[in-house]
Design a protein around this nucleic acid. Structure first.
Lengths: 160, 160
DNA sequence: ATTATAAATTATAAGCTTAAAGCTTTCTGT
DNA sequence: ACAGAAAGCTTTAAGCTTATAATTTATAAT
């Protein structure tokens, strides 16, 4: 290997473990998301953020408010304006003003969007399953558990 | 919790575990990197990609070729041009043509860059250590190990 | 009722990222 | 020596992302 993790080999002792873990987390995530991004573009002509947005909208038949979408996707609200614009232009989602609170914009999938997304989602799930197949189910569960602990640790450190 | 992982609760059984693991991996990484990005900007007025580039360059007293930098950072080559431009403009790194192979561009840290980066790196390490402190050292090692297995699984799946 | 505050979204500027095309330089096979 | 292929980098166009400021609408406190 010769990626970002090479850094740790040069670091002094102490707090080295955390840094190593963080870099491994980062490189693994990048590895997967770069590959997913590439395939989504090649096979469905869709970007990863667009797929992410559609994923959040799936199963929310009532649609979602932009602010909720922003929280779920962990991106800033300003980000969504353009992203939604493009997906609306493609006909996959639709904007909708709320009458009772006119500040709110709801976004929901169109029938076309739902149809196209279901194909993408199936492929996406297959890709992930294949990529992760080298990790035995039991270890997958273990890893998932450990990540939950880490995630909580990070959240607690950040929130007051 | 109410972030991206909420999706999995609606998915049918089978290959659910992989998807859950992937989404947890992604959200955890986003949580950490968003926070790191925020602090780097607030305290050092530097972006995360810039910090990443400087990290790769640290300890490489001889500098690095752009192509190597591209591999290590897992970004496309075209990405680096602008990134390097800005860091050169800031005086933290320097471009250098190789006489023996004039296609190659080497990038190395300036003294100023080295000085400023050492402050950033120290803070960065402290932040990570604090954020990860809720995960016992033994579990950190376990998680690091499991991620190595996963990383290999992903690499093998991708590479022919 | 009026004003102040907060919430939800959009606009803007700077920077990041990719894919694809293009340029220069080097290597390879003949 | 020469043509073709490959390597290394840059450019371009489209899209993503953040932070900040502005806009509109709703709520709360006089």
């Amino acid at each position: 290997m010769d990626d970002a993790e090479a850094i740790v080999r040069h670091e002094p002792e102490g707090r080295k473990a955390e840094l190593r873990l963080w870099l491994r987390l980062l490189t693994t995530t990048n590895l997967v998301s770069n590959e997913i991004r590439r395939r989504l573009r090649a096979e469905f002509n869709v970007t990863l953020p667009q797929f992410d947005l559609l994923s959040q909208l799936e199963r929310e038949s009532g649609g979602l408010r932009l602010s909720d979408l922003s929280k779920r996707m962990m991106v800033t609200p300003g980000n969504l304006t353009g992203l939604v614009d493009r997906l609306v232009a493609e006909g996959q989602i639709a904007r909708e003003q709320m009458p009772d609170d006119r500040r709110v914009v709801m976004v929901r999938m169109t029938d076309q969007g739902r149809r196209e997304f279901s194909r993408m989602a199936r492929a996406h799930q297959d890709w992930i399953a294949a990529m992760f197949s080298g990790l035995p189910p039991q270890e997958q569960m273990l890893l998932t558990q450990e990540l939950a602990v880490l995630k909580k640790s990070v959240s607690d450190c950040r929130a007051p």
